[in-house]
Design a protein around this nucleic acid. Structure first.
Lengths: 257, 257
DNA sequence: CGAGGTGTTGAACTTGGTCAAAAGTCGTGG
DNA sequence: CCACGACTTTTGACCAAGTTCAACACCTCG
């Protein structure tokens, strides 16, 4: 049970009761290995399972009539994938692996047990979904109204802020295992302009690149430039049905458990 | 109780048990009148209440460092406003009235009662949040990768599809009580180009305009042009904790009750 | 009738897209 | 260990879509 992906993930946010932990652990039967680039689920397929990412990066995307691709989400180790599709019978997005990855699937139908037996977990799932929503809304704001450099800046900040959920000690350097084309598809730029924007950031002394590792040399300046909000650092658990399994610590929990 | 906004709204999706209906009705104490353009809540303010829109249109927006405005959501009569902010202590977006409006506020803190006592309602709230998420992700896709005409087309389709939730008989004509500048801020265009795109749509014979009423003359062509998905028409309730208050009809409910 | 907000149209300008070629990187097999 | 080929990144030149600015028309509501 200690090595259940789900328990580990949600335990970051709430102190789970033994009951809840066991209930979650039972959802996972096994893990699955994915080679890089492989398609895990196509848009339009029936939604039967959700996934927790154990290793590697995944991305969710769709195509437009004109053939271009839009990447809607990137998922990192520890992420819960597929919450959006819970509301629909068929997946709204395709899901694929950026790099080699391991995922732990669990059946969508198991969600009802969580909603019935654990109000606190339900509230947590709800909140996690809403965090995703806020992140998307931030990205929309930047994409609609800012230039290439700002978009790339925002993207990089978002990546570190997500990586810090599970690795608070990451510092300012991290590896970015994706091509510039994929990055461009996430923020609505061509690969060419992603390259130019990254060069520009380097020129300004804001980032340093080596192989596919990035270091943010002036995170403050970057945050100021795009008015960045970290949506992951802290969520409001004060209204959660507390009697049941919320940690009895501060009314609002830091995510960096 | 019959005139509770919340009961009316959620009753569209689920057959509410008398208990649930009463619980919801108790949340609302009164309604509030808003003049056009008035600010209901500023970004950064503590989140204490959610709202159900009874009359008029609202919008949620934020500003960028460069001063431009991004409209993230438009809310219509029957909409539940503020779900996103439930996860945070402070509002991520400002909320204002497009036209004169009436809203029914209810306290965020009351949500815990729903999560504790009604798994079905919890699952419904969760799903409504995820629908919003899918809508945003659709808009992102269009904005990142399509031209002005496609963006406006998509926006208009999204508006009718939302209006049809509560007014299935709306046909293809509806009034659009917003300025072209506001519309542009929603889809990342200048007021000038919104005007040009609307003219272009008219030229093509896809829409007709009179005053601020719009008629879609060729909805099929419009849908095909942007590969439109209606996220509101149907949600998957088959996994809902059914024993409690889900309608015992089809496993998946049409939203057009 | 006048004023302010809203919508339309034209012209110059800017940003990012596209195409193409060159340079770098990585993994594989000899 | 090196060489090859495929993929990725970079750079340059040209092009297209949308922005900005400005003038004007149009309503609507005093």
């Amino acid at each position: 049970m200690a090595n259940s992906c789900l328990v580990e993930k949600l335990g970051h946010y709430l102190r789970l009761s033994p009951n809840d932990a066991e209930r979650l652990a039972r959802l996972e039967h096994e893990s699955e290995e994915l080679p890089a680039q492989s398609l895990l689920r196509a848009a339009g397929a029936p939604v039967r399972r959700l996934y927790v990412v154990k290793r590697g990066w995944l991305y969710e995307y769709s195509h437009l009539p004109n053939g271009s691709r839009q990447v809607a989400h990137i998922h990192y180790p520890g992420d819960l994938v597929g919450l959006t599709d819970v509301a629909f019978e068929r997946a709204t997005l395709s899901l694929a692996a950026v790099s080699d990855a391991t995922v732990c699937p669990f059946p969508k139908s198991a969600l009802d047990q969580i909603f019935i037996h654990s109000p606190a977990l339900s509230a947590l799932l709800f909140s996690l979904g809403m965090v995703e929503h806020a992140v998307l809304s931030d990205r929309l704001r930047i994409m609609a109204r800012s230039g290439a450099v700002e978009r790339v800046t925002h993207f990089l900040l978002e990546v570190v802020s997500r990586l810090r959920i599970t690795h608070p000690d990451i510092g300012e350097g991290f590896s970015l295992p994706m091509t510039q084309e994929l990055l461009g598809d996430a923020i609505g730029l061509s690969n060419v302009y992603v390259s130019r924007a990254l060069s520009e950031l380097q020129q300004r002394g804001w980032i340093e690149r080596r192989a596919r590792r990035i270091r943010l040399l002036n995170e403050d300046a970057m945050r100021a430039a795009v008015d960045f909000n970290d949506r992951h650092f802290r969520i409001d658990t004060s209204w959660f049905p507390g009697a049941l399994s919320v940690s009895e610590g501060a009314p609002s929990l830091s995510l960096r458990a």
